Simulated assay, not measured.
Amino acid sequence: TFVLLGFSEYPDLQVPLFLVFLTIYTVTVLGNLGIIMVIRINPKLHTPMYFFLSHLSFVDFCYSTTVTPKLLENLVVEDRSISFTGCIMQFSFAGIFVVTEIFMLAVMAYDRFVAVCNPLLYTVAMSQRLCSLLVAASYSWGIVCSLTITFFLLELSFRGNNIINNFVCEPAAIVAVSCSDPYVSQKVVLVSATFNEISSLMIILTSYAFIFITVMKMPSTGGRQKAFSTCASHLTAITIFHGTIFFLYCVPNSKSSWIMVKVGSVFYTVVIPMLNPLIYSLRNKDVKETFRKLVFTK
């Protein structure tokens, strides 16, 4: 059995943190499930872009639900224990959804590239079969990466110290309480995270480089503004998400401060799943219009 230390070193903040995280989680669930429902209801939104957005919302909902309920529980109960199996399962599922999101954002960048650079061939190039394959590949790679890291974590020995200095079963925190040499496990996490970051960012940066060149060649200012506005939400989501992941897993020295690791973990497991539906819905006329019609009809 492990004990998740969480934010117990700040006893006066337990209730305020519970209320803040409960509010964030409620917004996350309502926002992401709301986007999925809106996309399914409106036939106008049955396009590749919204198909990918609905899966992004599903992934956000899943990995927030994997982490946040246990975080909320530990803020109000004295017993902060979690079984070894429960801890490994929490990490495994969270790992699947985080890696899936990394490549889902890359797939969405490629979708924007095709839409802006080849608008006449968009419906042919982004066929339903290709969209399904891209989504399936993102989920499959997430499962492979998560199971690989989990396998090396299970190779470690755990005796004596069982205090995990985090609110979530995160690789660095699990490795820190093992009594084995963590070198191999740490390198697997570093290599996996770095590969995922570099490969997905290369797809994103290449796509947006071509988008920028195409947009700058457009004769009308209105056309440029429309093209940039469709990409702005996606770029915002990418910057926030990848910045946090890069800081936590691709910079070896970042693990020297546990409070920074906790803040980073809160950001990508609790805050970002809430931000994505807000980023995409607040800047999207079609989503807002469908939601408004749904509310007034009810």
Rank of each mutant, 00 (worst) to 15 (best):
V3M: 08
G6Q: 06
Y10W: 06
V15G: 06
F18W: 14
L19N: 07
V20N: 05
T23D: 05
T23M: 08
V29G: 03
V29E: 05
L30D: 04
G34W: 00
I35H: 00
M37L: 10
I39L: 01
I41N: 06
T47R: 10
T47L: 11
Y50E: 00
Y50R: 00
L53I: 00
S54Q: 00
H55Y: 03
S57G: 02
F58Y: 13
F61S: 09
C62L: 15
T68G: 03
L71M: 07
R80D: 05
S81P: 04
S81V: 07
S83I: 04
C87D: 09
I88F: 11
Q90G: 04
Q90L: 01
F91E: 09
A94W: 04
G95F: 01
G95Y: 01
G95I: 01
V98R: 06
V99G: 10
I102N: 05
L105M: 03
A109G: 06
D111Y: 02
D111S: 06
R112W: 05
F113S: 04
V114W: 00
V116T: 13
C117I: 01
N118A: 15
L120V: 13
Y122G: 03
Q128W: 13
L130F: 02
V135C: 08
S140Q: 12
S140E: 07
G142V: 02
T150V: 06
F151I: 03
F152Q: 04
F158T: 01
N161Y: 10
N165V: 09
N165K: 14
C169V: 10
E170R: 09
P171N: 02
A172G: 14
A172K: 12
A173K: 05
I174V: 11
V177N: 03
V177P: 01
C179N: 12
D181R: 08
D181F: 05
P182E: 07
Q186H: 13
L190K: 12
V191Y: 15
A193T: 02
S199F: 10
S200E: 06
S200Y: 03
M202C: 12
I203R: 07
I204S: 09
T206M: 13
S207G: 06
Y208E: 11
Y208C: 09
F210C: 14
I213M: 13
I213T: 13
V215S: 08
M218C: 03
P219M: 01
G222H: 12
G222P: 09
R224E: 08
K226M: 11
K226P: 05
T230S: 15
H234F: 09
L235C: 04
T239W: 10
I240C: 13
I240K: 07
F241Q: 02
F246Q: 09
F246A: 12
L248P: 02
L248Y: 01
Y249E: 15
C250L: 05
S254P: 06
K255C: 08
K255Y: 07
S257K: 11
I259L: 08
M260V: 13
K262R: 11
K262M: 08
V263H: 05
G264M: 00
S265A: 12
V266Q: 11
Y268E: 02
V271T: 01
I272Y: 14
I272D: 07
M274E: 00
M274K: 00
L278F: 09
I279K: 02
N284P: 00
K285V: 14
D286T: 08
V287T: 05
T290V: 00
F291W: 02
K293Q: 13
K293D: 15
L294G: 01
L294P: 01
K298N: 15
K298M: 15
